[in-house]
């Protein structure tokens, strides 16, 4: 037979769940920012490659 959970422990569990929501919220916000940054970085590298390639073409032209 399960022992009855004390009111104190129940309160603690509620507070932990709320803290877990807070934690989850900040984690997912942080990850969405990180992912956006990762995509932007990759996009930036592609842009740089494109510019380098164009420079190469122009360099050849001169």
């Amino acid at each position: 037979m399960n022992e009855p959970i004390s009111q104190e422990l129940e309160e603690k569990n509620i507070r932990e769940a709320v803290a877990a929501f807070d934690d989850f919220m900040s984690t997912i916000s942080e990850i969405s920012t990180t992912h956006q940054k990762a995509v932007d970085e990759f996009n930036g590298e592609l842009e740089k490659n494109k510019i380098d390639t164009i420079k190469k073409q122009l360099g050849d032209m001169r």
């Binding site: 569990n13 509620i14 769940a17 984690t27 997912i28 990850i31 992912h35 970085e41 990759f42």
Partner: peptide, 27 residues
């Protein structure tokens, strides 16, 4: 890029596991 995305997914799943465990403990 995809390492970053996968790592983020793992982190989210870990946090979801933890969230689930705390929600289970709510009276």
């Amino acid at each position: 890029l995809f390492d970053t995305i996968t790592s983020g997914e793992e982190k989210i799943n870990d946090k979801l596991d933890y969230l689930e465990s705390t929600i289970q403990r709510i009276p």
